[in-house]
């Protein structure tokens, strides 16, 4: 049943959560850039621009320890990381394109082996989505089957209303629990209509047609045409809400250290480089092809979902202006 919360009550809600020791992560300004980061107080929230990095970071950190080791003589003792100690979190102000990517990642992180680092954080986090009212020409969420008001992935979904305050729809028990714990701050459904949603101007892609084209165009001049421009950095993969590849590396001294899991990207030459010197994806067109294939074909083959939510971050950030929407549009027309 739809509820209503005023802006003031929302700030109080966030402040009480912070006082209760719950880590509230929301878009805030950090040295001039909007980023999802833990809040000091509800005043820091910035909800008009899309944060520079995606919300996957609350579940799939940029770098985290997965084990630590100590060496004495011939003996080694390794200590595990206790997932129980991941902090309780409320992820607030998540745009639909960020929230929708998180359930997509659930599939790979629970494929046979359960990655507790991701799944435990998922269990301990309540996601409060926020309808999107500002899109620029890089956004294309409507093209991949999402919309600025899609509540996919959110536990509680807020829609800004004219005259202030938010309509909130609960989408999961976590959302209901959050409302139940803070009953006083929520009122009955309001009648004022929502602030108009953003309208990205790209026409919809037929994802099955795109996948069909990709099925039998592994070798195609299209890849050379795009990827001669790509310089092989990891910016697009790191700002992407859906990219989930990582590296495991040991860091420390001879005596003791940590084994860390941190972001990696298929754009790098080192990603598939063998110690023997052989590299199955040695040139940039092969690497960039893998990025498009993984997003619009491989992930669909394995888990039946598309690994792209149309947030447009990679389009804005690409050093050489490679535009994934233009590429998929071109494939869509073939």
């Amino acid at each position: 049943m739809q509820k209503y919360i005023s802006q003031h009550n929302l700030d109080t809600l966030l402040d009480t959560l912070i006082k209760r020791g719950i880590r509230v992560v929301a878009p805030r300004m950090n040295a001039g850039i909007p980023l999802y980061e833990p809040l000091g107080s509800s005043g820091e929230v910035v909800s008009d621009t899309l944060p520079r990095r995606s919300a996957k970071e609350a579940f799939f950190p940029v770098c985290e320890d997965i084990m630590s080791y100590k060496k004495e003589g011939q003996k080694v003792t390794i200590t595990d990381i206790d997932p129980g100690r991941f902090p309780e979190t409320v992820l607030f102000g998540v745009r639909p394109c960020d929230a929708a990517a998180i359930p997509v990642l659930d599939a790979v992180f629970s494929w046979d082996y359960k990655d507790e680092f991701f799944l435990e954080r998922r269990k301990k986090t309540t996601i409060i989505g926020l309808a999107c009212t500002a899109a620029d020409d890089a956004c294309f969420c409507t093209a991949v089957g999402l919309s600025p008001s899609a509540s996919k992935g959110s536990d509680l979904f807020l829609t800004a209303l004219e005259g202030g305050g938010y309509a909130c729809d609960t989408c999961s028990e976590k959302g209901e629990a959050l409302i139940a714990n803070n009953q006083a701050l929520f009122d009955g459904p309001s009648t004022s209509n929502p602030i108009p949603f953003a309208e990205p101007q790209t026409d919809t892609f037929d994802l099955t047609k795109v996948k069909a084209w990709l099925n039998d165009h592994f070798e195609d001049p299209l890849w050379d045409g795009i990827a001669t421009r790509c310089v092989g950095c990891g910016a697009c993969a790191f700002v992407c809400p859906a990219c989930h590849c990582f590296d495991i590396v040991d860091e420390g001294t001879e005596k003791a250290g940590k084994r860390r899991k941190n972001w990696d990207a298929c754009g790098f030459w080192k990603f598939t480089h063998h110690a023997s010197g052989h590299n199955p994806r040695d040139l940039q067109p092969k690497r960039y092809r893998n990025r498009i294939m993984h997003k619009f074909k491989y992930y669909d083959d394995k888990f039946g979902q598309t690994l792209c939510t149309g947030c447009g971050r990679c389009v804005r950030i690409c050093p050489v202006g490679i535009d994934i929407a233009a590429i998929v549009e071109e494939i869509n027309k073939k």
Partner: peptide, 12 residues
Amino acid sequence: EEQWSGTIDTPE
């Protein structure tokens, strides 16, 4: 120093 997303308050 750690990135905010990777920190857990380990006793270590």
